[in-house]
Nucleic acid binder design. Structure first.
Lengths: 201, 201
DNA sequence: CCACAAAGTAGACGGTGACAACAAAGTCGT
DNA sequence: ACGACTTTGTTGTCACCGTCTACTTTGTGG
């Protein structure tokens, strides 16, 4: 009778993915600064030095986490956008609401993504971060085409739009204002934006 | 001849203040997570356990730093406001510009202030955080009295205003957009806000 | 089939936050 | 003026963490 015990194989096989998964869960529970490589290794069941094979140091793992966050955010925004109505206000509302929820449900991850403390020459993250901005820009171009936005300075308006959302998420994640206000705040922010950015009559 | 060497006295006398000062400077240089109590103690010239007398643990020092940051921010905003013209747009512009500069020149501190990872039951920070919000609210009440703002929902508008600034600062501190764009972004954000919040004709 | 690369292990080092036991200095009542 | 008490700083210790080096196991391609 062969060995039927569930001894772990010497090679985990999916260690990198397992690390990212565990890290992301721990981040949600404890925040980024409490995240310990040795802890993750223990939880997964490998030795304390195993993560080093996949991430040269702790920051590398955090960077990978952040990069992953941006791509996840991008897909969230795009799916929200495809499920929305055709008119510009609906599309803006859908996108911004999706962003706000992602940002408040992944607070620590968001903080990491915008931390800017990334590896010097960390082009990959910046690259991944461009996707959501690109999306926002496409949306605004649409809006301009529909005549809902005054022409010109699109990039700055897009940045401000994203910044507002980011700010709302930040003060909610920081317990400065109650979480229940989130949807209210997003709604009024959008109203303000639409009123402020539409063409002069 | 008495002892004229500059031996440190056994009691530092201002250790708490010295710690906060050193911590704040180090934060500006290295960020909050790189901040080490032992490092601070070394720099000041006390033993590694001395800080414990003034801050029971590391987080307590960070909390004190954050609280201090809010009061400093409040005074910055108030002085900017008193030096501004009487009309509402000028006052908004002065306040928001001051906020934006404070936020980008004290990036790590701001992150700490809005981190929300404070001591459970940390009422003091929330209390200190209320001051800037209060100021913003007063300003908006003024604006309403001057007829520059539509009536109603002032608190939400104030929160959004602050959030927008916070967001702009965040994406600049995170190197998502170039620092040179700061003033431009603030200006257009204010324009948008004033256009979006003014009474319907 | 075997050399070699990839992936995981074991052990060590310096640094850190927290804690306990102790020492010096200030303070205050008598 | 002086002794008890409190405050503030010191020394030593512990567990934990990230990182590094050297070693072992496993998979793979010539």
């Amino acid at each position: 009778m062969p060995d039927t015990t569930d001894e772990r194989p010497y090679h985990h096989g999916r260690l990198r993915a397992a690390l990212l998964d565990a890290a992301e869960r721990r981040m949600r529970e404890q925040g980024a600064d409490q995240l310990s490589l040795r802890d993750l290794a223990r939880e997964i069941g490998v030795s304390h030095a195993a993560p080093r094979r996949h991430f040269p140091d702790r920051q590398a793992l955090l960077d990978a986490l952040a990069e992953d966050g941006f791509t996840r955010l991008d897909t969230v925004l795009r799916t929200a956008l495809t499920g929305a109505d055709k008119d510009f206000p609906s599309r803006v509302r859908a996108t911004m609401t999706a962003y706000a929820h992602f940002a408040t449900e992944n607070a620590a991850l968001l903080e990491l993504m915008y931390a800017g403390k990334h590896r010097p020459g960390g082009t990959r993250i910046v690259k991944a971060a461009e996707a959501p901005f690109e999306l926002m820009n496409e949306l605004l171009v649409e809006g301009q085409a529909q005549g809902a936005l005054q022409p010109g300075a699109l990039d700055r308006i897009g940045i401000i739009l994203l910044a507002t959302l980011q700010g709302i998420a930040a003060i909610i994640n920081g317990n400065i204002v109650e979480r229940e206000l989130l949807d209210d705040l997003v709604d009024t922010a959008i109203d303000q934006f639409l009123r402020g950015a539409r063409p002069l009559p």
